[in-house]
Amino acid sequence: MHDDIGAADPGSFRRRDPQGVQTEAWKQTLEDTEAIAQERRDEGWDVVTVMAAHTDTVSRDMGEDDRFGLMHVIPNNYVETVTDTFDSDEFTEYLVYGTEIDGFMFVVTELIDPETERSMLIPSRYDIARADGMITAAEDEDALYTHFKTIDGTILGTFEHDEYDPFIAGNA
């Protein structure tokens, strides 16, 4: 990876992390994910962790539909885990663990199926500077959505969160 990637096109610029603050925050997010998973397993729950290849904020004005929220792009090696585990009728509860660090939100989303004691954890991070449209839609609808899609754009599932504050900087 080159340090000057995006230098010619400011729109494609990726923020650098010279002090390693974001790198450490991501490591902590992964450690938190594993700690939550272990705690649930110790209580007898079935837990899966889904690693997204990328997480982005989406707003209504970005596509052909009215989708907004966090869009997790699921790599092929996790697609089967999502399709075998997630069912929006069974996963009816959630917990969100989020913190703002250096202009990014680092979030662990836990989707919960209380009936069968199953939990699905999704660690993620998103750029706060690109979240205005998502935040506006969440405030307008008083809800936020977690979406899962494949790299080719196929939607695997959607979960509605009736509280969005834990996902948003300054409110987590």
Rank of each mutant, 00 (worst) to 15 (best):
E64A: 14
I5H: 12
G11W: 10
T158D: 11
A35G: 01
A131W: 01
L121I: 07
Q38R: 12
A25F: 03
M134Q: 03
E115A: 13
L95R: 15
R125T: 10
D165P: 00
D9N: 15
R125A: 11
E110D: 06
F159M: 11
H161C: 01
T33E: 05
G153M: 01
I151K: 11
E117P: 08
Y97P: 00
V48F: 08
T116M: 12
E31D: 14
L111M: 14
F68Y: 15
P123M: 01
D142F: 04
G63D: 08
V96S: 08
A172C: 09
V58P: 00
D152H: 08
T154I: 07
T23V: 12
D132H: 07
Y164L: 04
A138Y: 00
T109A: 07
I101Q: 12
D87K: 03
R40T: 02
A169P: 00
Q19Y: 13
I128K: 01
T158Y: 00
D140F: 02
T85Y: 10
Y126K: 00
I151Q: 14
G44H: 02
A25T: 09
R16L: 11
A129E: 12
L144H: 02
P166E: 07
K149H: 11
G98L: 04
T99A: 10
F104E: 08
M51V: 11
T49K: 14
D32H: 10
G157K: 05
N76P: 10
L144W: 04
Y126E: 00
D4Q: 14
D162S: 07
R16I: 00
F91H: 01
L121S: 02
D132W: 05
N171C: 04
V47R: 03
R41K: 14
E24Y: 07
E100F: 01
E90M: 08
A131G: 08
P75G: 12
R67M: 13
I151E: 15
H147V: 11
T109N: 08
I101E: 12
R14L: 12
D140A: 11
R41I: 13
E93G: 07
E141L: 07
T99D: 07
Y94A: 04
F13R: 13
D32N: 13
Y164K: 03
F86H: 07
V79H: 02
S88L: 06
S119D: 04
T57Q: 06
D66A: 14
A137F: 02
D152M: 06
T23S: 13
E64S: 12
T29K: 05
A129Y: 01
D165E: 15
R60M: 04
D140S: 09
L156P: 04
F13D: 10
G153H: 03
E39W: 06
S119C: 02
Q22H: 11
G153D: 04
V82H: 08
T158F: 02
G11F: 15
